[in-house]
Amino acid sequence: MDFLTLEQSVWSRLKEETRPIVLYGMGDGADKILAQFDRLGIRASGVFASDEFARGNLFHGFSVRKLSDTTAELGEDIVIVISFASQRPEVLAKMYELDAGYDVVAPDVPVVPGPLFDEAFVREHSADMQRAYELLADERSREVFLDTVRFKLSGRLKYLRNSESGKDEVFENILRPGADEHFSDLGAYNGDTIRELLHYTDGRFASVTALEPDRRSFRKLNEWASANIEGDVTLVQAGAWDRDEIRCFSDQAGRQSHVANKGRETQMRALDSVLNGRPCTYLKMDVEGAEREAIAGARQTIERDRPKLNIAAYHRSEDFFELPLLIHSLCADYALYLRHHPYVPAWDTNLYAR
């Protein structure tokens, strides 16, 4: 398949754009997009925020205004670049409302540093993309794969909306967790995905082993678990990695926490070491770009127990095709599924296997 025929790169299109380009949103995502603008010679004409956040403060030299003030100056014929991420229904509704009235794009920039998903990236990785596409177990996964490529190239929201599905479909039709799961949660945050699993098992489980490196998130995890679940529960303040060692960690809580060249020294653990032979029937990973290392550190567990898998596949541009190939290399009889849950940009795109 010639993936380059699916869409034009948003970066190429913005370089050619003659209309005013304005950013919607501030923060880390906008920082990354403006850095790419500087690198590619793309000129922004303004920044706006939702009315309740538009206070005229400066962001990269732009006064952050309301959309109405922005269009009063620049006109209605503008290109809006969504520059932040959200899964909140009311925020997504606002984005879709803008998309209906304006030329809107949401350029895909990787969550952790790495190459952009552009034409050159697709040419370099097209063979691996084709291999991963052919491994997927159902037509819906193949649709999600192609829409992910289309979105990452074009930044068009319609491709994300077309490929959305809810968590119920995954848990009821693919993962189908039961009351006797031995659950390993890598990147447990505050216990949100433990709660998610227990929702589908009526609160029952055989054991829970959870790793979370961020000290504030781990404190919340420990407080929640102590108050809400009883049984065989092991909580470890550590990051998931391919071996047990100390690494620097950007201890910032949430999605900004990741292994880095500088930061707080943090214990990292391989799941195989943590479990030390104990069983795992359901394995979830959302480890902010360290999924490859976490999979390497869980290799013995995966090959021995063949647990159901729930793996984040969106932190790096290549995750949605490289991670299926990696799992297939460890256990070739897995049925591999790709699903995207409501989020802009293409976050919460996950690899599922059973």
Rank of each mutant, 00 (worst) to 15 (best):
His315Glu: 05
Ala253Gly: 12
Ala294Cys: 11
Leu146Arg: 14
Leu40Val: 00
Pro20Ala: 12
Lys32Ala: 12
Ser141Gln: 09
Pro110Trp: 11
Val344Ser: 05
Lys32Asp: 09
Val233Lys: 04
Ala290Leu: 10
Leu275Ala: 07
Arg255Tyr: 03
Lys284Cys: 05
Ala137Gly: 08
Val64Glu: 03
His315Lys: 07
Leu275Pro: 01
Ser250Phe: 08
Lys152Phe: 06
Arg142Gln: 15
Asp108Phe: 15
Glu291Gly: 11
Gly239Trp: 01
Pro110Tyr: 11
Lys158Thr: 14
Ala346Pro: 11
Thr70Asp: 08
Asp244Phe: 01
Arg43Ser: 13
Asp103Gly: 06
Gly61Tyr: 07
Arg354Gly: 04
Glu293Pro: 09
Tyr282Ile: 01
Ala227Asp: 15
Gln36Trp: 03
Asn190Ile: 09
Arg204Trp: 01
Pro213His: 03
Tyr352Gly: 03
Arg278Gln: 13
Ile229Arg: 10
Ile246Asp: 14
Val344Gln: 06
Ile327Gly: 07
Tyr159Gly: 06
Tyr314Trp: 11
Thr266Pro: 04
Leu74Ile: 01
Ile311Val: 14
Glu245Val: 11
Ser126Met: 08
Tyr343Asp: 12
Asp38Val: 03
Met268Trp: 04
Ala106His: 08
Lys158Gly: 06
Lys152Asp: 09
Leu92Met: 13
Ala30Pro: 09
Asp232Lys: 14
Ile311Asn: 10
Gly41Trp: 14
Lys158Val: 15
Ser63Leu: 02
Gln36His: 13
Phe320Tyr: 14
Ala206His: 08
Gly187Gln: 14
Asn57Gln: 15
Asp2Ile: 00
Thr201Glu: 00
Trp224Lys: 01
Arg204Leu: 02
Arg255Ile: 11
Pro113Lys: 13
Asn190Leu: 04
Val274Gln: 04
His328Cys: 00
Ala312Arg: 12
His328Pro: 05
Glu196Trp: 00
Glu291Ser: 11
Asp2Lys: 05
Glu223Ser: 15
Ile194Asp: 04
Ala120Glu: 11
Ala120Arg: 10
Ala225Thr: 14
Trp241Phe: 12
Glu139His: 04
Thr70Trp: 06
Tyr133Gln: 10
Phe3Gly: 01
Leu235Ile: 05
Ser257Pro: 00
Phe117His: 02
Ser45Glu: 11
Gly155Cys: 07
Asp138Ala: 02
Leu330His: 10
Ser273Gly: 11
